[in-house]
């Protein structure tokens, strides 16, 4: 077990590679209770979230979820997050564990007259079941018609006889659900899912596989691809930013930075030679440092070393040859399109 933002988390159960492959071919079960939740409720809740986040909450239908962010006034990332909209008066923001306290303080510090802005992280345990068999496994344990919950949708119901929010989201690039359950029920729901899913190949999976899966799917991780130094433009997250929706925190800075050419961009790379680049290793071109690896690993799906990182814009073109300084050794790498992995539909 390792310490992760104060939570004791398993890095692996049986092994990162086997867990990773189980999620790609069948299903994996993750305890992601460390994720934080902020509830915003009351008349005007939507307007509050609209000002707090850059995606367009007004266009989000009730029962739907979108990726968004908390941005600094400079237009850089405080955190990325999911907005779950029950109604214009009731929204739930799902944030990263490592930022949960900061995020809540940030949200609560914005004026919110007559609104409840609550840290409800302790109220929910979160179990993710991910993989091509995930829906079939959940279906064995719920009366909710899962066909009515589209990707990035959610519904309230029961799983294994316990009250749950069933959210068709995840962090692996696969179909699947994130199940919000009461902490007292989490053990029973976990066990019921494992029992129901084991014959279909479901295995428990840890933080190690979660990281390799999200990296293959090119999903950003706070502290690596995005942080208080990075803008959505550099990170390729333009689609999250709705400059036309009205004012929001960070908008002015983003309008200004949009007008300037980017100095660097997030790219995918794969190692061409032998070796594995990791977070913090430098990209080199023509003997000059031209960027930095933000996430690097061995990919269990593609059986090669790959990752993401920032490079100077002129080099951020698929096919570009680079080198990566891996502990003093220059290993050849190549810029490739993102994502590495896209699930078959």
């Amino acid at each position: 077990m390792v310490d992760f933002a104060g939570w004791e988390m398993p890095v692996q159960y049986a092994g990162v590679i086997d867990e990773h492959r189980a999620v790609r071919s069948a299903a994996g079960l993750f305890d992601v209770s460390h994720m934080g939740q902020i509830r915003v409720a009351g008349a005007g809740a939507q307007d509050f979230v609209q000002r707090l986040t850059p995606n367009d909450v007004a266009k989000l239908a009730p029962g739907r979820i979108h990726l968004s962010a908390f941005l600094t006034p400079e237009g850089t990332y405080i955190d990325d997050l999911l907005v779950c909209k029950t109604s214009p008066e009731e929204l739930l923001l799902v944030v990263n564990a490592s930022n949960a306290a900061n995020d809540f303080a940030w949200a609560a510090a914005q004026p919110h007259p007559g609104l409840a802005v609550e840290d409800v992280s302790e109220r929910w345990a979160l179990i993710a079941i991910q993989g091509p068999k995930a829906a079939a496994i959940v279906a064995k344990l719920t009366a909710t018609d899962l066909g009515t919950i589209r990707n990035y949708g959610f519904a309230t119901g029961q799983v294994a006889g316990k009250p749950a929010i069933l959210s068709r989201t995840g962090y692996t690039g696969e179909d699947g659900f994130e199940l919000f359950v009461e902490p007292a029920d989490a053990g029973a729901v976990w066990d019921a899912l494992l029992d129901a899913g084991a014959p279909m190949g479901l295995v428990p999976a840890g933080l190690g596989a979660r990281d390799t899966l999200r990296l293959e799917a090119a999903m950003p991780l706070y502290g690596q691809e995005i942080d208080r130094e990075t803008t959505p433009w550099e990170a390729g997250l333009d689609w999250v930013i709705k400059l036309d929706k009205g004012d929001f925190i960070g908008r002015d800075a983003l309008v200004a930075s949009r007008a300037r050419p980017l100095t660097r961009k997030l790219i995918g790379y794969e190692v061409v030679g032998r070796g594995i680049a990791r977070h913090g290793h430098k990209f080199v071109s023509g003997g000059r440092e031209v960027g930095v690896v933000t996430s690097g690993t061995f990919s269990p799906t593609f059986e090669k070393a790959l990752g993401m990182g920032y490079v100077e814009t002129a080099l951020a073109v698929p096919g570009t040859a680079l080198e990566i300084d891996v502990r003093g050794r220059a290993i050849p790498a190549r810029v490739v399109p993102l994502p590495f992995y896209k699930r078959p539909r």
Partner: peptide, 9 residues
């Protein structure tokens, strides 16, 4: 030399 696993070096 070095030995790399998925998660560490």
């Amino acid at each position: 030399g070095t030995i790399e696993s998925v998660k560490a070096v």
